[in-house]
Write a protein that binds this DNA or RNA. Structure first.
Lengths: 182, 182
DNA sequence: AGTTGCACTGCAACTCGTTGCATAGTACGG
DNA sequence: CCGTACTATGCAACGAGTTGCAGTGCAACT
């Protein structure tokens, strides 16, 4: 499991409540790891028992109190230990690829319109990444040590979206060509 | 869940036993969907209860008997129904991305050597896909309707590996540059 | 005054998939 | 003859993640 470790990385950068983490995951870690708030609260509880993080209650005015979690020395040690382990290559899971593979047994038009929807989603995400890159890393040749990891991951996101768009285009183009043949 | 549907696609192309399916998944569907034999047997059992597939026993000489599954009309209908549904965009899960993101809290050398291992794996997989493309689809402009889906999915695999290699190179290059700065 | 929406935390039940194990016949090399 | 490897099927226990539900408190809109 790596959700624990994704949370550790996030907390190593900055302490946060479960709610904060859920939103931070949405905003910046979601490109390579998603988690619902339920999952995050559950894992945080376990991590607290394991002493990887410690919580203290912060009273707030105008909104509910929250529990802010901070990484402990044990947590940092765990992060170091985990990072030195070989990373298993994860099995890809692409439902749309299954549909494309089985196109001739399925509803062609529905799948193609699905591909168009995806293409749009990839475009939107790419635009978001590009804006983020322009804003935070205008000069990639002068990155600080603390920024390099986040920058490289953003690059992965960018490349992923570009590839997604290119693949959608190939699919759609293949069908345009076939129509033209008739 | 789409394992059911991945199996349906596979059985729609050709009837097979659980064992066959497991190997077929390894060889050709694994790029976008992996499944262990245990999982496949379990799901096949459920699919048989649902009448999506039917099994008949084939006695063999020189090896154990096997149960060959064939897709039913109900199974084909299900495949059609499923293909017309919008496909949820799956959440990416990349442990290596988490490690890269948290590079400054982890074991730099270990992560980088991990990246090198991945690069090699991507290279090997790319070579495999390219060989497969050259063998099965020497002329992509003249694809039959029955081949198009498999071809497009192979293209996705190719692009995926190329992107993986490019990303690994960026990471490694970033560290070469940093070393040079010292 | 009532509704909607956001900040905030959490439990329970379920599904999907993984890991480990069990079983059994055949083939082949040492 | 023994060990290993391949074909072939399956169960049990566990782990990770999803879905659905539940509750509090405050702010802003109607």
């Amino acid at each position: 499991m790596a959700l624990e470790h994704a949370i550790l990385v996030s907390l190593a950068e900055k302490s946060a409540s479960g709610y904060d983490l859920a939103r931070r995951f949405d905003a910046s870690i979601a490109h390579f790891w998603k988690a619902s708030h339920q999952q995050i609260y559950k894992v945080l509880g376990r991590m607290e028992s394991d002493k990887w993080v410690e919580a203290h209650l912060v009273e707030q005015t105008g909104r509910p109190d929250k529990k802010v979690y901070a990484i402990t020395d044990e947590g940092r040690a765990e992060l170091l230990r985990w990072s030195s382990l070989p990373t298993p290559i994860e099995s890809p899971r692409s439902e749309i690829a299954v549909k494309v593979r089985g196109l001739r047994f399925g509803d062609r038009d529905a799948v193609l319109s699905d591909v168009r929807v995806r293409r749009q989603a990839h475009l939107a995400q790419l635009a978001y990444y590009e804006a983020s890159a322009a804003k935070h890393y205008p000069d990639p040749s002068a990155l600080g040590d603390d920024e390099l990891g986040a920058y490289l991951v953003l690059r992965a996101g960018l490349m992923q979206e570009q590839m997604g768009i290119a693949w959608c285009d190939e699919i759609l183009q293949a069908f345009v060509d076939r129509e033209a043949d008739r």
